[in-house]
Amino acid sequence: MRAKVLSIPTLLIAMFFMSWQDADAHCEIPCGIYGDSLRIQQIDEHITTLEKSMNQIIELSEEGDKNYNQLVRWVTNKEEHAVKIQDIVSQYFLHQRIKPVDPSDSEEYEKYVKRLTLLHKLQVYAMKAKQTTDLEYIEKLRDTLHKFADAYFHKH
């Protein structure tokens, strides 16, 4: 009986601390509940936020009397959204949705490699967007996301 009494408080404490963790990506407990289209929309929204952040950083940097507090806020915002893209790509698509394919099935393996390549590009372009205010990476992110969505949702 004593073991049960000790295990309930321990369980409650564990649940309390687990609730503090970010739960941005969907679970990894094969629940079968996936929102692939939603994740694509979220990445698209993060790209738009990156673009807005970059434009604000550029605009604020060109002002004579710089508002460094606002600059820091936009830089931090830009970096957070770049990381969110990387998290969705990694945690959701690479960990859960893109399954390894037998190389002997050349058609499926080609699709697999294409999807992995596009996801890797999204990761790299998000990193580059984090490091700079070069809007070229916004276009690369959008183009790559579009290509990934096409490769992921459409049968070729």
Rank of each mutant, 00 (worst) to 15 (best):
Y137R: 06
I47D: 02
M18Q: 08
E80P: 00
L38W: 04
R97C: 05
V72Q: 12
A14F: 02
N77K: 07
I8H: 13
Q86V: 01
K84H: 05
D102Q: 05
K99S: 11
I88H: 01
K84P: 02
I43W: 14
E107F: 13
L135N: 11
S19K: 04
I43T: 13
L38N: 03
S61G: 13
L50H: 00
E62G: 11
D22C: 02
T117Q: 03
I40R: 03
Y109P: 00
H95L: 10
D44R: 15
E62R: 14
H81R: 07
M18H: 04
G64E: 15
I98F: 09
P100M: 05
A14D: 07
I8L: 15
P30Q: 15
I40L: 08
T49K: 08
E51P: 08
A3I: 15
K111Y: 08
V101T: 05
F17D: 09
V101W: 00
I13P: 06
V72A: 14
D150G: 03
N67D: 15
Y109S: 04
F93G: 03
L6M: 15
I88M: 06
G32M: 08
M1A: 12
E59D: 13
S104V: 10
Y137T: 09
V5W: 14
I138E: 09
Y125S: 02
L94Y: 14
K147M: 05
E59L: 15
L118W: 01
K111L: 12
M1C: 03
